[in-house]
């Protein structure tokens, strides 16, 4: 065990945890917007996969990582819109419609990949940015301030989300629609428009999450996300529908995975325990859900379609 507490390993564990948290963070923040307005979107993973393929393909063809991220945005917006049509306008059962989007994304991203790319070729990665001064701090600098550009964007999205939800008029409408759509409606807030907006934001961030993952890994493959989108949904509950909480959840998940991995590399967890160790993140999440559920309540209108006059 003492092997674990060496400087190099600790730095790598923290840095690795942060890297693993990034796609989850993007996707969870997006999902949080939808849930705050009362819509549960289970299709995140499918949108992530489509965004991942789109981002990968764009970079493969143009060598421009930012264009790749933009393609992820565009795909995310389109599927956010589709989700909104399904959940808001057509009032589809939210627990199930997302599964359809997931299966579609899983199959279609793979289909396009096979059709357009075939052999997985590596692409350019995001540039690494060492933040001046801060990155020179011993240990901490290496852990936190020597990451690729997209990592900083992800963490910058957290205060931005806090600001939007807590300090803006739009954020107030989101909260109102999520807690009491009837009251919001009677005050002249369009429940439909607000939910469309939050779902498009959610789709956008899911698309970005996928593109960021693919570009960070420099590769696309069938089922690249490996169900990360579902973890992201759980993290929203874990984070009690608050950006900081969501960030904490994403980091915790990243760290648990990263620590398990380091322990395996160092031989502290024996190989025969691999499968048992792989359960750890899910079990930790369930326990966390129990604790969070005691203290926080979900938005009151979550999963309920709005119908005026009922």
């Amino acid at each position: 065990m003492s092997d674990f507490f060496t400087e190099a390993v600790l730095i790598a564990t923290v840095a690795g945890g942060i890297r693993l948290a990034v796609p989850l963070l993007f996707a969870s923040l997006g999902e949080m917007f939808g849930q705050r307005s009362g819509v549960l979107n289970l299709g995140v993973d499918g949108v992530m996969l489509l965004g991942a393929f789109g981002g990968y393909y764009a970079v493969l063809k143009t060598d421009n990582v930012w264009l790749g991220l933009l393609v992820g945005v565009a795909i995310g917006v389109v599927f956010g819109l589709i989700t909104a049509v399904m959940s808001v306008t057509l009032k589809a059962e939210q627990g199930i419609s997302g599964i359809g989007i997931y299966l579609f994304g899983l199959g279609f991203s793979d289909l396009l990949f096979q059709k357009w790319v075939g052999t997985p070729l590596p692409i350019k990665a995001f540039p690494k940015i060492n933040i001046p001064v801060l990155s020179d701090i011993p240990i901490i600098g290496e852990m936190l301030f020597r990451h690729s550009a997209v990592v900083y964007i992800a963490f910058a999205a957290v205060p931005l989300s806090m600001f939007i939800i807590n300090r803006t008029n739009f954020g107030m409408k989101i909260r109102a629609v999520g807690e009491n759509p009837e009251a919001a409606d009677s005050l002249g807030v369009s429940v439909t428009k607000v939910r469309y907006a939050t779902l498009i934001i959610g789709g956008l961030l899911a698309g970005v999450a996928g593109a960021a993952l693919a570009i960070d890994l420099k590769i696309f493959q069938q089922n690249l996300t490996n169900a990360a989108g579902f973890i992201a949904i759980a993290l929203v509950y874990f984070g009690a529908w608050r950006p900081l909480g969501v960030m904490g959840g994403a980091l915790l998940y990243g760290f648990v995975n990263s620590i398990v991995l380091q322990l395996k590399t160092l031989g502290i967890i024996p190989r025969s325990w691999s499968d048992i160790a792989a359960m750890a993140p899910a079990i930790v999440t369930i326990l966390a859900l129990v604790i969070v559920a005691q203290r926080f309540k979900p938005p009151a209108a979550l999963t309920k379609p709005f119908e005026r006059g009922r």
Binding site: L213, Q221, N226, N257
Partner: peptide, 9 residues
């Protein structure tokens, strides 16, 4: 199939 985990490994 977990590419991200392979990468982190």
């Amino acid at each position: 199939s977990d590419v991200a985990l392979a990468s982190e490994t």
